[in-house]
Amino acid sequence: MNGLKVKTHYLVEGCILAQDITSMTNRPIMLKKTVITNDLLEVLRAFLITEVSVEKTLVDGKPYVPKEIIDDEQEGLQQSTSFTSQYLNAVQIYKRLFTNWEAGSPVDITKVREFLIPLLEKALENQKEIFLLHHYSTKEDYFYHHAVSVGLLSGFIGKKLNMDKGDIVQLTLSGCLSDVGMSKISPTVLKKKTSLTYQDFEEIKKHPIFGYRMLQNNPFLKDYAKLAVLQHHERINGTGYPKGLNGKDLHLFSKIIAVADVYHAMTSERVYRKKHSPFKVLEMIMRDDFGKFDVKVLKALTSGLANFTIGNKVKLSNGYLAEIIFIDSHNPTRPLVKVVDTNTIIDLAKQCDIYIDEILI
């Protein structure tokens, strides 16, 4: 049982769909991993959807306890240990820790390690989860989702680059803590719901230095992991901050976290920007930001797209539902797909005006 099967009228805001909801024509009305809002509840009522399957954890990390479960299996009543539940719980723990750091508490890395490393191990067991993290991120709690996700993405890339276990742990912790210095930025800037002004951005640009200072004397983080916190917004062509360093001066950890950071930001829903699919974002980074990021790091992350194997459903930018029938390891962001309704084969490597808009799991 992958979720709880419940009547639609028992749904609440924050429920997460465990399965796609389809119409009479088998076209998806809502996709798996969609977070339910009041507006979406109205859509379900309009389509006369009477029951759905949802995760056992709400998007805020709290358990979902409906008044009635249709499939009243014991498994559904137990505390879920799914990746989704574990991830959402980790985000809430990080949020509480961040509030403590804002109040001046020192960073206790052992508390971060307690929730983060078991979560990484679970993600590495099913690596598709790494490319679905953006589904859970909300506009309100984006910042906390971002920290946990950057940690997981960094550890995933380290694994792909065949790092030893100790370095993967240090890299994962460093990625999660890369924005710890944001706790020293003015809350009015940090929680701003509109685009940042030049002055706002200049203040934000100080957070790597603040973060490095907060971690500088911590014995549980290696020096090169602390350095990555300072350098994660640097770019190999010298266009980053805070020091404008170039590739030869940057540690590999810094280059990895830089990629994880921008990738998760671009795949997530933001107050001022819509989210994009992992396929499109990786293509955009390689095309539009060429020269800013380490190529082997990008390739390590992009290689994970091969986990989406033959038969996985995707939604194309032209609105069509399709399934992947072949992924070329040399061009993984543009696989061969078959349109579900017509069985038409589209080679996205040759149809540059069409891209994968969303992954349907």
Rank of each mutant, 00 (worst) to 15 (best):
I256K: 00
I256V: 05
A258P: 13
V259C: 00
A260C: 00
D261K: 13
D261G: 13
V262S: 04
V262D: 09
Y263T: 06
Y263K: 00
H264Y: 08
H264L: 12
A265E: 06
A265T: 15
M266A: 12
T267A: 03
S268V: 06
E269M: 04
V271Y: 14
Y272I: 05
Y272G: 06
R273G: 14
K275M: 12
K275H: 14
H276F: 13
S277D: 04
P278A: 00
K280W: 09
K280Q: 13
L282N: 02
M284Q: 13
M284F: 10
I285S: 01
M286W: 00
R287T: 14
D288G: 03
F290M: 10
G291E: 01
G291A: 10
F293R: 04
F293E: 05
D294V: 01
D294A: 02
V295S: 08
V295G: 05
V295Q: 08
V295P: 07
V295H: 09
K296I: 08
K296Y: 04
K296G: 03
K296C: 06
V297R: 04
V297A: 01
K299E: 11
K299I: 10
L301K: 05
T302D: 08
T302A: 03
S303A: 12
L305I: 01
L305P: 04
L305K: 02
A306I: 14
A306Q: 05
A306M: 15
F308S: 12
T309M: 15
T309R: 10
G311M: 04
G311D: 08
N312T: 14
K313C: 08
S317C: 10
N318Q: 12
A322L: 02
E323C: 15
I324E: 11
I325K: 14
F326T: 06
F326R: 15
D328A: 02
D328V: 06
H330C: 10
N331K: 08
R334S: 15
R334F: 01
P335I: 09
L336D: 08
L336Q: 03
V337S: 14
K338G: 08
K338I: 13
K338Q: 14
K338C: 12
V339M: 12
V340S: 05
V340W: 12
D341Y: 00
D341G: 00
T342R: 01
N343S: 09
N343V: 04
T344Q: 10
I345H: 15
I345P: 07
I346L: 11
I346E: 00
I346V: 07
D347I: 01
D347A: 12
A349S: 09
A349W: 14
K350G: 12
